[in-house]
Design a protein around this nucleic acid. Sequence first.
DNA 1: CACTTGACCTGTCCGC
DNA 2: TGCGGACAGGTCAAGT
Length: 293
Amino acid sequence: MPELPEVETVRIGLKKLIIGKTIVNVSFDWPKSFPNDPQQTAAFILNARIQNVRRRAKVLMIDVSTDYSLVIHLKMTGQLVYRGEQTFGAGHPNDSLVGDLPDKSTRVIITFADNSQLFFNDQRKFGWMRLIPTLEIPNIDFMKKVGPEPLEPSFTLQVFQDQLLRRKNTNIKAALLDQTVVAGIGNIYADESLFMAGIHPKSIVGAIPKRRINLLHDSVVHVLQLSINKGGSTDKNYVNAEGKKGSYMSFAKVFRQEGNICPNGCGSIIEKIKVAGRGTHICKKCQKLYKVA
DNA sequence: CACTTGACCTGTCCGC
DNA sequence: TGCGGACAGGTCAAGT
């Protein structure tokens, strides 16, 4: 569930909270969540200072002063929650989904010199946190393959079209979810942008008219940016770096809206179908199916 | 090579 | 109430 807007919201929050802090301890209970040699971990990041928090696609990078980075993928249920002096003994805000930490989904705990802590929680254990030399990050497989950042100015219509050409025989939903086509789109924003562009998710990429691709390009950018402005989507698990929910779900037009009236006012009901192996939300009337060029 | 499906996990919900 | 099974969805490996 954490997609580009959620990861970006975490990045912005973490940047405010942990820059300049010194790591004094790292502990973990599930090796797959933190597949690093414990001795190396100690040698490479203990007493290191946090210098920057970056994002590429759905991947977060916490750069430290030893030229190493903690590279983090939250996958579906990962959370990065900071607890610091301002929250000690203060209880938890109403919009928090997270209670006392650590809890049973806590996989990694990073403790800073001022006793504040960063918790990596991950109920389903799909996410991971790896220690990698900062300069080597571009060489890891995922970074080499991942497509353009949709919110960069370089993500032009032409770039989008060219990227989609590589998947022209598959359905548009699978193409949008393919991280080598565009970085950062997941199930929520694929459904939302396809609805906004009026394209049925089962449409074959090569059969979609150029003006619709143009609309889809603009929809992707709009939907992602709107969600960042709303602090991301909290469907079940997602929280920001302070443990708080995002509010985009109350603006979602089709995602998890099955059974409701189409917000376009066309009179039909939002349906849930399966496309590319994923739950997919559509308005049959407003989203046109393109099968043949 | 293009494309699809299954595995990785755990918590929740639904039907019997 | 208990219990099995489907489902949730990001990514990679394995399959067609």
